[in-house]
């Protein structure tokens, strides 16, 4: 389960930025084509955050729909899942976005 390793990176990056301050909320951006499951991230977050400045923090995840351009007809195509065909029938799509795995922001507790 790679979500565990990914969440370890999230906790370590956020903790580094928070210094010793307590973190209240973390906001992630996860692309629908990133091969990472938000549910699994939530599960791992509670386990990994334990004993760090992130313990008890709220994890928010924005899921991002992918965008692609059809190489056959030039249309823009929305990617809700990894295997998608354009309305013209072509599967030859140039993916523009959808694999995001970013930490957008963190909220620190008021001093």
């Amino acid at each position: 389960m790679h979500e565990m390793g990914i969440m370890k990176s999230v906790v370590s990056i956020v903790a580094e930025h928070a210094k010793a301050q307590k973190v209240k909320r973390v906001l992630l951006e996860v692309g629908k084509l990133s091969a990472v499951m938000p549910d699994a991230l939530h599960f791992c977050f509670d386990v990994i955050a334990k004993g760090t400045v992130l313990e008890g923090a709220k994890l928010e995840i924005i899921e991002v729909i992918g965008q692609a351009k059809c190489r056959a007809c030039g249309q823009e195509v929305e990617l809700h899942q990894i295997v998608t065909a354009c309305a013209c029938g072509s599967r030859d799509l140039e993916r523009l976005s959808g694999a995001e795995l970013n930490i957008k922001e963190m909220e620190l507790e008021a001093a």
Binding site: I13, V14, H17, K24, R25, L101, N102, I103, K104, E105, M106, E107, L108, E109, A110
Partner: peptide, 9 residues
């Protein structure tokens, strides 16, 4: 609280 934008991969 204080929200800090991280924008980090």
């Amino acid at each position: 609280g204080t929200t800090i934008a991280l924008e980090q991969a």
